[in-house]
């Protein structure tokens, strides 16, 4: 009796093989053509040697380069990279704060907000190095182009995140300040800034962290920082130099990432 009930229940099991088969077909249909377009030409003739040399370079970096404190040494390049990121973030901040207020739906009307949101979206979608190449036409190659590029690209992300914070504002506090007879300036000073400050600083530090990475890449298009020397070193097969540059980059980013994580965690916990 009970046996037959169990067999009955067993026969009722959902037949999953149809959905399995379908998902396998879909995956194969997407991935297979994809794999065939990726052309693997094998290692280029010297590929393995290059790989080995870069690895050796990281283990045996060029110490004289690391300890060279002149404008040709690693410390200067790293400082320059950090300075580009720092100024870029700051200029981005100065532009994106008003932009964010203009685009926040609880501050302005829907029409104005939509216009500014669209502008921000367009700024955001351009790839970083397109701006880089454009700014080089303005300032000539060098760190200054990097600063302007990062400023512009930071605007996209900073304002987007700022808008979210502003739209989360607790308006109750402003009302209570209103009730106690504060003027607009006082309302901003005591009602809005304290609420926004920690979040804004946290976002800013996060973006600085990203900008340090971007600054190192921008060098590749000639916009200052560690990227250009890296490319030259690789083109010139100076592997110990490549090794020290990579090492410097890794250490710089790790330090800034760790500090940024620590500060942001502290800000979040008050």
């Amino acid at each position: 009796m009970s046996k037959s009930r169990i067999i009955e229940q067993y026969e009722m099991r959902p037949k999953k093989w149809v959905s399995y088969l379908l998902s396998i077909i879909v995956i194969v249909a997407i991935l297979f053509p994809a794999i065939s377009t990726i052309s693997f030409n094998g290692f280029s003739k010297s590929g393995l040697v290059v790989a080995k040399n870069i690895f050796l370079g990281i283990i045996n970096p060029d110490m004289s380069f690391i300890l060279d404190f002149s404008e040709l040494g690693l410390p200067f390049l790293l400082l320059e990279t950090a300075a580009i990121a720092f100024l870029g973030t700051l200029i981005g901040l100065i532009i994106s704060v008003p932009l964010a207020f203009l685009a926040a739906r609880n501050i302005t009307n829907k029409f104005v907000s939509n216009i500014f949101v669209t502008i921000i979206t367009i700024i955001r979608t351009f790839p970083v190095f397109v701006y880089g190449l454009m700014f080089i036409r303005v300032t000539g190659p060098g760190a200054f182009a990097g600063v302007l590029t990062l400023a512009l690209t930071s605007i996209g992300m900073l304002s987007k995140l700022f808008i979210e914070v502003i739209e989360d504002l607790d308006t109750g506090i402003i009302e209570s300040l209103d009730a106690s007879g504060c003027n607009t300036l006082q309302k901003i000073r005591f009602g809005i800034i304290p609420q926004l400050m920690t979040n804004f600083v946290s976002i800013l530090i996060y973006r600085f962290d990203i900008n340090v990475k971007n600054a190192s890449v921008l060098g590749l298009v000639g916009a200052g920082g560690i990227g250009a020397p890296l490319q030259f070193a690789m083109a010139g097969s100076k592997w110990d130099l490549v090794g020290s540059l990579l090492l410097g980059l890794i250490v710089l980013v790790l330090i800034i990432e760790t500090c940024s994580d620590k500060i942001r965690a502290k800000l979040a916990n008050g």
Binding site: F43, V50, S216, V217, G227, L230, M234, L249, E257
Partner: peptide
């Protein structure tokens, strides 16, 4: 920590 573009640069050499 190493940016994608730097990986790409190295890997094109390999």
């Amino acid at each position: 920590t190493v940016p994608v573009l730097v990986y790409a640069l190295i890997l094109t050499y390999i």
